[in-house]
Amino acid sequence: MPRDDDTLFAALIARDPSYEGFAYVGVKTTGIFCRLTCPARKPKRTNVIFFSCRDAAQEAGFRPCLRCKPLDIKPPASEAFHTLKERIKTEPDRRWSAQDLKTLGYDPSTVRRAFQREYGVTFVQYARSQRLGLAVDTLQHGGSVTDAQLDAGYESGSGFREAINRLIGDAPVRTAAHQILTAQWLDTPIGAMLAVVDDAGIHLLEFAERKALPKEIKRLRERVGPIRFGHHPMIDRLAGELEQYFSGQLTAFAIPVVQKGTAFEAGVWDALRQIPAGQTRSYGALAAAMDRPNAVRAVARANGANQVAIIVPCHRVIGADGSMTGYGGKIWRKQWLLNHEQRMALSQSQT
């Protein structure tokens, strides 16, 4: 990724998130340093200096910005975003409306954009998905369809059944006969991720913008079972390990991965997990390590079929010429992850 000053200034003006974590800007006239994504008014080109890390900015005498908080691990989201997520947790069965948001002092259109930016759904859709998760719990514990329907805020039985079908792929009255997977959104420094788990481990972990995500969810329902939004101990464990990873304290995940695939795909995914953090492999090298030197294309396809990002590190596979090849979670995230892991590996080698 280019880091010359002209490119970095263009990224600053565009608030480009691809430099998040390894490029900062110092403003000479204020003595403050910021993330390139800082929402503050942009300074003149002659008044800025760029740094590759936070320590360098502080050593040069710059103070951290109070708006973008560059010393925090995660970029700050809007106050409304965090507050409303907490309100949904504490009031999971509440049916939210635009008037509710106005009463709390929030602009509904601003809230809608914030949730769409992070999760790809509106605030109302996000809240409803959480209510549907509670409704499925009601059904699984012997409650009636009518009780579950009212808990989820649906006056129409047909509307409730349609929503449940879209969410978990089965009619409500039959859910007790199936293994139910649990889904939840997790926030990371480089964007929201959808996690799907059960008691055995992780089935899916993907960034919200991944174009193949709807197909992956459909395939997961077909291979394993229906999905509902809710809370699960495995989600808590995953969130904890991801927090350690992004804070630079964890390079190898211990949480079990149970994504379903062919025997060959499973072999590729296992080979991916053997690549140490801070290192990369080409598709050819990965095929050779599996004693399948002629299966480079098949290895590439299996790499792309991986549904557990970061933990099964398909981002560590690059082109034979060292180029950043395709990555469903966006190329800039692949570069970010590789830079992050290289920093972790260097830090560990120096201790």
Rank of each mutant, 00 (worst) to 15 (best):
Q99F: 10
Q99N: 13
L101H: 01
K102Q: 13
L104D: 04
G105Q: 01
G105P: 04
Y106W: 06
Y106I: 02
Y106D: 04
D107K: 00
S109E: 10
T110M: 04
T110K: 10
V111F: 00
V111A: 03
V111Q: 08
V111S: 05
R112C: 00
R112S: 06
R112Y: 05
R113L: 05
R113I: 04
F115V: 00
E118G: 01
E118Y: 07
E118I: 03
E118Q: 01
E118R: 00
G120P: 08
G120D: 12
V121C: 13
V121H: 11
T122A: 09
T122E: 11
T122M: 11
T122I: 09
V124S: 13
V124R: 13
Q125F: 04
Y126T: 05
Y126C: 03
Y126N: 06
Y126R: 02
R128W: 04
S129K: 15
S129C: 12
R131A: 08
R131G: 07
G133A: 08
G133S: 09
G133W: 02
G133M: 06
G133P: 05
A135I: 08
V136F: 07
V136N: 00
L139V: 07
L139Y: 05
L139N: 01
H141D: 14
H141E: 15
G142C: 07
G142E: 05
G143S: 09
G143Q: 08
G143V: 09
G143I: 07
G143M: 09
S144R: 14
S144Q: 13
V145E: 13
V145T: 12
V145G: 00
V145A: 00
T146R: 14
T146D: 14
T146H: 12
T146A: 12
A148P: 00
A148I: 00
Q149I: 02
Q149C: 08
Q149N: 06
L150E: 15
Y154Q: 06
Y154P: 01
S156N: 08
S156F: 04
G157T: 10
S158Y: 12
G159H: 10
F160Y: 06
A163F: 06
A163Y: 07
I164H: 02
N165Y: 10
N165L: 12
L167R: 11
L167W: 09
L167D: 11
I168D: 11
I168T: 11
G169V: 09
G169P: 03
G169T: 08
D170I: 15
D170M: 14
A171L: 14
A171K: 15
A171D: 13
P172I: 01
P172D: 06
V173P: 01
V173A: 12
R174L: 14
R174H: 13
R174E: 12
T175E: 13
T175I: 15
T175M: 15
A176L: 13
A176Q: 15
A176I: 13
A177F: 15
A177L: 15
H178K: 10
Q179T: 14
Q179F: 07
I180G: 02
T182A: 03
T182H: 07
T182P: 09
T182C: 11
A183W: 01
A183G: 01
Q184L: 04
Q184S: 03
Q184K: 05
W185Q: 02
W185K: 06
W185M: 06
